[in-house]
Design a protein around this nucleic acid. Structure first.
Length: 795
DNA sequence: CTATGTAAACAAC
DNA sequence: GTTGTTTACATAG
C-alpha cells in the first residue's frame, strides 16, 4: 500500500509464505488472502482437490514405509522406504494402491530411501516414481521433458497431466563445467530434463533425512503456485548408480539455491567471458546453465531480480554497442574482483569457496530454499557443493600471517598506491577494501591474473612505480573513455579519487558496502595476491574516500557506457554515462591538473581532504549501494569522462565505504563474493610477502569503530608499506606521508599499531588454531578446501 | 540500518 | 515481449 505515486495499486504484494506445513492441507496458499483481490493466482485451486487423497496413503505398507503426500504435486505421494526394503514389493503395493484409489488417488509415487542422505547413493537412494497410469518409458519422458520448454523452465505447462518425466540425475550437468556458454542456446545444454520437480526432489531429500518435515513444503508451494509442477521425477537407479556422485551434486545444485547473491552470480557470469561483458540474456543463460536451480526451480521472477541487480549496483555498467543495439553489461573495473565460478567451484563438482562469502547468501538460501531452516541443518555441511564466498566467522577472516616467509603487512586500504596488480584486477575497490584490514598476504606469485584488459594505459601511471600498477584497474579498458592511455596512466593514479572525508559531509555513503568488501578476500587460489598488496595506504579513510577511479575504461570504442547516478534516496540511480564529456574533463587530461582531483583522489591521503569534496560533492550524490558506485564516481573523474561527467562529482558518495561500514562490513566482508582477490598485482612484489587474507572481523573487534581501524591501518600502511610502494611513486608517497599527519591519524597510528599487534597476537593465534583444526577448516573453507591451497607454505 | 531478495510499475524499444 | 530503471516492501543479520 503505499501511496507512492507510482504504484498505487499494489496493495500488498507480499507473498506470505504459508506456513502450513502439511502438504495435504493447505493447498491454498493463496497468498494474500487478505487482499487477495488483486492477485489472482491461478491455479491453485487445484490444490485442494487432490490433496485429499491423502488418506489413501500411508497405511498398509510394509513396515518402515512412510507415505506422505507430495506437498506440491497433486496426485503424488512420497514413499519413504527403508534401505533394506524390497523395492519391488513396495512398488507393487503402491501400484495396487493406486488402482484402488482410482483416479482420485495418487497416481504417482516418489520413492525415496530413508536411509540415505538426500543424495542417492547407489541403488538405495533411488527414487522412483510410479504411476498408476501407464507410463511411457522413462526415456521417452525424458525426452519430452527436454522438449518442453525449450530449456526454460518448464513450469507451467501441462498442469494436470501427470506427465512424468524421468529425470536422469546426473544430467550432464553442464553447470559444473564452469564454462560458460554463451550463446543463447538455451536449450540444449541443460535441457536435460529436469523440471521443477527438482524442487520436489529437494524436499524429498530433506524429508528423507529429516523425516519429512512439512516445512519444505512451503517453498514448494510457492513455486508451485507459479508454476504448477506436474511432473514427477523419476530417477533411475542405474543411472544413479553410475553417476551417483555427480548426480548428487547435480541434484544439489538444482535443488539448492546457490549460496551466492545475484550480484555474485552476475559477476561470475560476466567474468566468465573474455571480454568481461555479457548481454542480459547471456547472463540469464549462464546462470541457468551453471546454477540449475534457476533454470528449474526458481521462480521466473529471478530474472527480474537479475535485472534489478544490474541496475541497482553501480558495479555493473551497461555498455552499448556502437550501433546502439546491443547492450552489454560489464563490471566496473574497479569493482571487479574477477571472481569466477571456477574459483568457488570445485572441479570435482564440489564447490570451492575459497573465498568467502557473504553471509547473506546463506540466509538467502535458507529462505529460498525452503525457508526452512531445518533444511539447512542437514545438508549443509555434508553436502554442499557450493561454497559461500565468505566465511562468516570473523575470526577466520582475520588475516593471518603464515609461516610463510613473508612478513605481514598491514595493508592499508588504499588501494592507492598500491598498485594493484596491474594486470589484474583492478579492483581498486578491492584493494581498498583490503586495505582496511591488515592482511597478510601470501605472496604468491603475482601472477596475477592476466587481465587481459588492462592494456592500456592506466597502468602506466604506474610507470613510476612499476610495480604498482595502477591501483585500479586499468584493466579494463573497456569503458574508459579516455583514451589516452598514456596520459591516463599518469593520471590514473589519479583515478583514485578520493572522496575524502568529506564524506562526512556527504550524506550518503556511497558504498558502504564496499568498504567491507575490501576487507577480505582472500583469494582464491589463484592469483590474487593483490590482496596482499595492500598498500600501505595511509589512511583508511582515504581509501574510502578515494575512490578509485578506475581508469576509465574505454573499452570498446563503440560502446557507450551508461552510468547511473544515484539519486537521493533511491537505492541507486543511474544515469547514463555519457561519454562524459563533461566531467571527464578533468580527469584524464589533466591528470596533472586534475591531479588535484584525481590525484587527490587517488591519493587520498593528503589530498583527499582537500580536493575531495570537490569532486564529489556531488550533487546528487546519491549514495550508491554498491561499491561500484564509487568507482563510478571516480571514473569519470579520472578516467574519462565518460561516464560520469558530472557525476563524478557526486562521487562523494563514496564515503560510504569509508567509515563505519568498514568495520562492520568488514566482518562480513565484501559481500560481494565476487571480489576476488585478485590481486595479481605485481606491484606488490614488494608486498608479496603478504598474504592476502584479510580479516575483517577481527578488526572490528579490535577497534571500536571501523574508522579507527581504518585509520590505524592506514597509518600503518603508510608508515610501513607505504614506503615501498611509494617508492615508485613519488606522489603516492607524498601523499601518504602527508596524509598521515593530515589525517590526524596520529591517533590512528597508534591505533594501527595496536591493531597490528592485536592482529598478530590474537588473530593470528586464532587463526592458526583454526587451521589446525581441520573441522573448522572445513567449515570455513569447505570440505574440499584446504588452507594449504591458499597457502602453499602450509603444506 | 544494511544488504539482499522479490514484486511490480513503467518507460523504451 | 525484452530490457532497464526505480519503488516498495520483506527479511535476516
Amino acid at each position: 500500500m503505499r501511496t507512492s505515486p507510482r504504484r498505487p495499486l499494489i496493495l500488498k504484494r507480499r507473498k506470505l509464505t504459508l506456513p502450513d506445513g502439511n502438504a495435504s492441507n493447505s493447498p491454498a496458499r493463496d497468498e494474500p488472502d487478505g487482499e487477495s483481490k488483486g492477485v489472482p493466482k491461478q491455479e491453485h485451486s487445484k490444490g485442494d482437490k487432490p490433496r485429499d487423497r491423502v488418506e489413501c496413503g500411508t497405511q498398509k505398507f510394509p513396515a518402515g514405509i512412510k507415505i506422505i503426500n507430495h506437498p506440491t504435486m497433486p496426485n503424488t505421494q512420497v514413499v519413504i522406504i527403508p534401505p533394506d526394503a524390497d523395492i519391488q514389493s513396495i512398488i507393487e503395493a503402491l501400484t495396487a494402491k493406486g488402482r484402488e484409489c482410482g483416479s482420485n488417488g495418487p497416481n504417482k509415487f516418489i520413492l525415496i530411501s530413508s536411509g540415505g542422505s538426500s543424495r542417492p547413493t547407489g541403488s538405495t537412494a533411488a527414487q522412483q516414481t510410479l504411476q498408476s497410469k501407464a507410463e511411457t518409458s522413462t526415456a521417452t519422458k525424458g525426452a519430452r521433458a527436454a522438449d518442453c520448454q525449450g530449456g526454460e523452465k518448464n513450469i507451467g505447462q501441462n498442469p494436470d497431466k501427470t506427465v512424468e518425466r524421468a529425470v536422469l540425475w546426473p544430467p550432464q550437468v553442464n553447470s559444473m563445467g564452469g564454462q560458460e556458454q554463451e550463446g543463447n542456446s538455451s536449450g540444449e545444454a541443460t535441457s536435460s530434463g529436469l523440471d521443477n520437480s527438482l524442487t520436489n526432489i529437494q524436499w524429498l531429500g530433506k524429508m528423507s533425512s529429516d523425516g519429512l518435515g512439512p516445512c519444505t513444503v512451503k517453498q514448494e508451494m510457492e513455486k508451485e503456485n507459479q508454476t504448477p509442477v506436474q511432473e514427477t521425477i523419476k530417477i533411475e537407479e542405474d543411472s544413479i548408480a553410475a553417476t551417483a556422485t555427480s548426480s548428487s551434486l547435480w541434484q544439489d545444485s538444482i535443488s539448492e539455491r546457490p549460496p551466492y547473491s545475484y550480484m555474485a552470480m552476475i559477476q561470475f557470469a560476466i567474468n566468465s567471458t573474455e571480454k568481461k561483458r555479457m548481454t542480459l540474456k547471456d547472463i540469464y543463460t549462464w546462470i541457468e546453465d551453471h546454477f540449475p536451480y534457476f533454470k528449474y526451480v526458481a521462480k521466473p521472477g529471478w530474472k527480474n531480480s537479475i535485472r534489478h541487480n544490474l541496475s541497482l549496483h553501480d558495479m555493473f555498467v551497461r555498455e552499448t554497442s556502437a550501433n546502439g543495439k546491443i547492450s552489454f553489461w560489464t563490471i566496473h573495473p574497479d569493482a571487479n574482483r574477477y571472481l569466477t565460478l571456477d574459483q568457488v567451484f570445485k572441479v570435482s563438482g564440489s564447490w570451492e569457496g575459497k573465498q568467502v562469502q557473504q553471509k547473506r547468501h546463506i540466509p538467502e538460501l535458507q529462505k529460498n530454499t525452503g525457508g526452512n531452516s531445518s533444511n539447512k541443518t542437514e545438508p549443509q555441511n555434508a553436502r554442499r557443493k557450493m561454497k559461500p564466498l565468505l566465511p562468516r566467522v570473523s575470526s577466520y577472516l582475520v588475516p593471518i600471517q603464515f609461516p610463510v616467509s613473508q612478513p605481514l603487512i598491514l595493508q592499508s586500504s588504499l588501494k592507492v598506491p598500491q598498485p594493484m596488480a596491474q594486470g589484474a584486477s583492478l579492483s581498486g575497490s578491492e584493494a581498498i577494501r583490503s586495505s582496511k584490514r591488515v592482511r597478510i598476504a601470501p605472496k604468491v606469485s603475482v601472477s596475477a591474473k592476466p587481465s587481459s584488459y588492462l592494456t592500456t594505459g592506466p597502468v602506466k601511471e604506474k610507470s613510476h612505480c612499476d610495480e604498482r600498477p595502477p591501483p585500479f584497474a586499468p584493466t579494463q579498458s573497456v569503458k574508459e573513455n579516455n583514451s589516452q592511455p598514456g596520459e591516463a596512466p599518469a593520471s590514473f593514479p589519479a583515478a583514485l579519487c578520493i572522496k575524502e572525508e568529506k564524506e562526512d559531509s556527504y550524506p550518503d555513503k556511497w558504498l558502504p558496502s564496499f568498504p567491507p568488501v575490501s576487507s577480505i578476500k582472500e583469494e582464491p587460489v589463484q592469483s590474487d595476491e593483490e590482496t596482499g598488496l595492500l598498500l600501505p595506504v595511509p589512511c583508511v579513510k582515504r581509501e574510502k574516500h578515494f575512490t578509485v577511479l578506475k581508469s576509465p575504461p574505454r573499452g570498446v570504442s563503440d560502446t557507450v557506457i551508461i552510468k547511473r547516478r544515484k539519486m537521493g534516496r533511491s537505492r541507486r540511480k543511474q544515469h547514463l554515462v555519457l561519454p562524459c564529456s563533461e566531467e571527464p574533463v578533468l580527469v584524464l587530461p589533466e591528470s596533472g591538473g586534475s591531479d588535484s582531483f584525481r590525484l587527490a583522489s587517488d591519493l587520498p591521503f593528503l589530498q583527499e581532504t582537500q580536493s575531495l569534496e570537490l569532486s564529489c560533492s556531488q550533487e546528487e550524490g546519491g549514495p550508491f549501494k554498491t561499491p561500484v558506485k564509487e568507482m563510478f564516481c571516480k571514473l569519470p573523474v579520472s578516467s574519462t569522462p565518460s561516464k560520469v561527467p558530472t557525476a563524478t562529482p557526486p562521487m562523494g558518495g563514496p564515503d560510504s565505504w569509508r567509515f563505519a561500514p568498514i568495520a562492520k562490513e568488514s566482518s562480513e566482508l565484501d559481500f560481494s563474493p565476487v571480489r576476488t582477490p585478485q590481486v595479481p598485482f605485481t606491484s606488490l612484489q614488494e608486498n608479496l610477502d603478504l598474504l592476502g587474507f584479510n580479516s575483517t572481523p577481527l578488526k572490528n573487534s579490535l577497534f571500536d569503530s571501523p574508522r579507527q581501524l581504518l585509520q590505524t591501518e592506514s597509518n600503518d600502511m603508510v608508515s610501513g608499506p607505504l614506503t615501498s610502494s611509494p617508492a615508485s611513486n613519488p606522489e603516492s608517497t607524498k601523499q601518504s606521508s602527508p596524509e598521515l599527519p593530515a589525517s590526524g591519524l596520529p591517533e590512528n597510528q597508534s591505533l594501527m599499531e595496536g591493531l597490528v599487534l592485536d592482529t598478530m597476537n590474537n588473530s593470528l593465534s586464532k587463526i592458526l588454531l583454526d587451521i589446525s583444526f581441520s573441522g573448522l577448516e572445513d567449515d570455513i573453507l569447505g570440505p574440499e578446501m584446504s588452507w594449504s591451497q591458499f597457502i602453499p607454505e602450509l603444506r
